[in-house]
Design a protein around this nucleic acid. Structure first.
Lengths: 245, 245
DNA sequence: TAATGTAACTGGTAGTGACCACATTACCAA
DNA sequence: TTGGTAATGTGGTCACTACCAGTTACATTA
């Protein structure tokens, strides 16, 4: 891990500095609620202008690593060890955190013409086709959720079952293969009752209470990318979000 | 509505500019996905340095009003008309958006010694007292949710029933009276079953499915401020979040 | 002793000037 | 027509400078 700034690399200095500072925080070198060196001290320490220092600190404040107090200093946030929200809404990571082994059964993976409601959400013209992925999500081998994803991929942009099984993460495929970086999402949650079909797949009684989670994912430029509907077993799942403003 | 920058006010120029730009976006003066004037043009238009221009634009990008494209320009985000998340997690605002009239019955409002689990969440020593507010939330006059808030207020920091009824918003009181600005929150949602007492208050059958929402609110410096538990009627409530990363 | 004021910190705001990296366009040559 | 290329306009990065606005500690004063 670099402890000094390399002025010759293509990596911006503010980014390098932010990495160095983040490292010190994560290593526990700076304790929570303790002040980091003042901006003018950092100026001397790393031989960087205050403009750049502030840019680095700004980004860490934004990410929740630091907080500022006018006239007093900049302090280390008591960290909750949480990564970005994408990790948290990633089903697999989520389960691992709860000490369960994630798994999935891919029920279907194909290009389809979805219900008009889905097209409307994805802001696509009527008659468009999208990629649909139906999965049963497992925790320690037993069903936990029933997930249907609709991806706004142009014809020609395809995902194979091998890719899904190899990476396991749909978001990694979106990122690496199609250069789509999800940045925002709208989610709703409500309670519903299991239909006979859903009950069978989730191995619960018909009429059992379920948690219904719908998500609309947006990319960098705010274009809708994915519409997902997930039905969770009410007795085996707890939804978690971390909100920042 | 200020359409020009006042250099003499205490309000920072970047903030004034951000307000002006936000206004133009909200008024629809600039269409979604259309470019706003370039940073160099704004420099001339408002007689402000590019440093300040960028600071204003940065904040609007952060808030989701604009997005940048390197080499092309800065563009208006297709807005979903959503304010900050605090407004959305505010029960009243939430209901209004759905076309219902919000209401509440304050069942109790007092300083108590809460269960140890609550103290632990609020990072307070055993034996501490907190402010507890129990409310029934109404939509169009009928019960929708059962809310219990625990506030980490020091003895002496009190809230009166009149204040609660006058402002209606707990967060406004926190902000204006105690200068506490909530900036982050952890929330969980899960499905539960109504106990007889809960069923009576919510006017549903015992055993009816409910949506249980727990929230831990943090202030600027990441100190836990409020722990809330809300039980929603499963048939009358849908939880909504907007996520950014 | 207690009040107070001031100096020396902290982060916050703002301007200027320079150069880099990327995208688009117009134009020219093959 | 095609393909390269240079000009130009965009946001991205960085340095240096100046002053404002809170906070704190300590010396001074009443």
């Amino acid at each position: 891990m670099s402890r000094t700034i390399d002025p010759f690399t293509a990596v911006p200095k503010y980014f390098q500095l932010a990495s160095i500072l983040r490292q010190k925080i994560e290593d526990g070198e700076w304790a929570p609620r303790s002040p980091i060196p003042s901006e003018r001290q950092l100026e001397v320490l790393y031989n960087i202008s205050r403009t750049t220092i502030r840019e680095a600190i700004d980004s860490l404040v934004q990410q929740g690593y630091l907080y500022r107090e006018h006239g007093r200093g900049t302090f280390v946030s008591p960290q909750k060890l949480q990564k970005g929200w994408m990790d948290l809404t990633s089903f697999s990571e989520d389960l691992v955190k709860r000490g369960m082994k994630p798994g999935q059964i891919i029920r279907s993976l194909e290009r389809v013409e979805p219900p008009p409601r889905v097209l409307q959400r994805l802001e696509l013209p009527l008659g468009s086709t999208v990629y649909r992925i139906e999965r049963v999500r497992l925790g320690d081998g037993t069903p936990i959720g029933l997930q249907t994803s609709y991806l706004a991929l142009a014809p020609g942009q395809e995902i194979t079952q091998q890719e899904m099984e190899a990476t396991g993460s749909l978001y990694r495929i979106l990122n690496e293969k199609f250069h789509i970086i999800p940045t925002e999402a709208d989610e709703t949650l409500e309670v519903t009752i299991a239909t006979p079909e859903e009950a069978a797949l989730l191995e619960v009684a018909t009429g059992a209470p379920l948690l219904l989670n719908e998500r609309l994912l947006f990319s960098q430029d705010r274009r809708p990318v994915e519409y997902v509907k997930i039905l969770y077993r009410g007795d085996r799942y707890q939804y978690f979000v971390h909100l920042k403003r």
